[in-house]
Design a protein around this nucleic acid. Structure first.
Lengths: 145, 145
DNA sequence: ACCAATCACTTGACTAGTAAACTGAAAAAG
DNA sequence: CTTTTTCAGTTTACTAGTCAAGTGATTGGT
């Protein structure tokens, strides 16, 4: 009892990093008036628009309900629009949303990149990316069952 | 624009893994009647009890408000108790909470360990742990400022 | 032509988290 | 002795997410 394995220590580090980096991201994005979660979704929309709501949920790894709520907020803030066609809703950025991404994207990219660059070498980053990809893909597969 | 760096790809992988592994953990813990977040807090209490509420917040990397709410829920479920002394509240497990941890801990440890073991070698795990530790410590330091 | 199934999305009830404003009692200051 | 500060914790108002039940229009079966 009360003895940890390497595996659980890895989980803990990852969980802590995610939580803390999220706080930092939210702090960083505050002046821009959006949250880290909103940035993620807007970024997916910018990349894939126009995109079905259900497909967006998959890209952002959110539940159907979760994406519905998030899009309601983003719509209220005027960043996105939903165009109903048959039974599907097509999501795209409004010009306001487009402008917001133009404003924020580069900053956020630099912010994230710097955080990693300042503590890991190029070689280490490649290794970390490879290992995290393995781990994440394995987890993703489990989720399907 | 729209070009990602290695750093942002790493962030994305980590975020996805955390989110997905959390879903899996919650699913796994469901039969035991607790959530992953509750397990984490109970685990910290088990390790450090009796512990001040404010110190527990630090250990669990939660805000003061967050830990207050979480403990209210855990108290309602009968897993923990808060003993007021002067102005601080000392948190410890009840016998029911102790029993629950006895029941769950080993399972959750095995669950997490297996997830990592089945896709990474011992060597890879050591490397991943080292790199994630660097990254997390760096993030933690930023948070203080 | 009608009833059932299905599809895409929404809603209700919940956990979980934050920041910021608020308590209430103790210690320190005058 | 009052008044003020301070400290630990709570509460409020919010975002963000889940699951599961509900909606409402279209499509299929008989």
């Amino acid at each position: 009892m009360r003895r940890n394995t390497l595996g659980t220590l890895i989980w803990l580090r990852i969980a802590r990093f995610t939580h803390q980096s999220n706080l930092l991201s939210n702090d960083f994005l505050k002046p821009f008036g959006i949250t880290a979660a909103q940035f993620d979704v807007l970024n997916q929309i910018a990349t894939y628009q126009p995109i079905k709501q259900s497909e967006l949920a998959v890209k952002a790894t959110l539940s159907e309900g979760g994406i519905s709520r998030m899009l309601t907020r983003l719509e209220q803030d005027g960043y996105i629009q939903r165009k109903q066609e048959w039974k599907t809703k097509w999501i795209s950025l409004t010009s306001s949303g487009e402008a917001k991404m133009q404003e924020v994207f580069q900053h956020q990219l630099t912010f994230q990149t710097t955080m990693v660059d300042e503590c890991l070498t190029e070689e280490e980053q490649k290794t970390l990316y490879k290992l995290m990809t393995k781990l994440q893909k394995n987890t993703e597969n489990k989720l399907g069952c």
